[in-house]
Amino acid sequence: MTHTAPITPDRNTPNPEPTAIARIVSFWKLFMRNRSAVVGLVILVCVISLAILAPLIYPTDPFRMVGRPMSPPLDGYLFGTDTLGRDIMAGIAHGARTSLMIGLIATIVALGIGGLIGGLAGYYGGWIDEILMRVTEVFQTIPSFIFAILLVAVLTPSIENIIIAIAVVSWPALARLVRGEVMSMRNREFVQANVVMGMADWRILLLQVLPNCLSPIIVAASLLVATAILIESGLAFLGLGDPNVMSWGFQVGAGRSVLRQAWWICTFPGIAIMLTVLAINLVGEGLNDALNPRLREREQ
């Protein structure tokens, strides 16, 4: 066992704070114990490297024709070419950039909205909580994927609008989570002490409460990146992707009509989506286990 914290820590006498490095090391050890999380991390690092290196490996525009249309895999091109003779592997490499970027930014935006609404609702309670939670409920009732389709269709498809649409349909779950966490912190002694000290509400919320409920939020956010990538690929598949940016969903959608003649066009970008989402989910679960070690022991 790496963590030696007593089961009932005495809140009045502060424990000697472990240094940041020691904490990271113990977190890393816990994380590495989880084999599937490590597998996920390895895959994820590969996808990220591919995304970073894409402009170096495939410097030409991924939309450009490079070879004979619909040439099968390994016939000059690793994964073959599509109906217009575009290199599928080049598309996958550039698509990795799109997927990861949209997934990440949409999650950050959703965290901003959800954190603000959940934080305010949990911290102030009362009628503010009542109103904000009603609003959240409305957004949770709306079928999210159709709402995303509608938003992108109305706002016209572009990277920014896709990010907005994904964030708008994703924040409610985060808001609920943050609200619950903040509520449980609200009446703890250290928060009360800050109130007595006359610290401004936003500083207490941002500097005192939030850092203490970070771990479940990190886990939820990491899983949200995976969901965001899935939503983005679905939108792009339906033809609602940014027309100027290569994406995996677009590739699958473009190959759909020739599925019978050229199976590879749809197959490989789909595998890329699956592996990436799987990797992020595994890492997310690994984070969960490493950040909440006690929960893990209870489950086993």
Binding site: L230, S233, G234, F237, G249, V252, C266, M274, V277
Partner: peptide, 10 residues
Amino acid sequence: LVSYATPLFW
């Protein structure tokens, strides 16, 4: 886990 990660259209 795998079917969790696979896009429906694919």
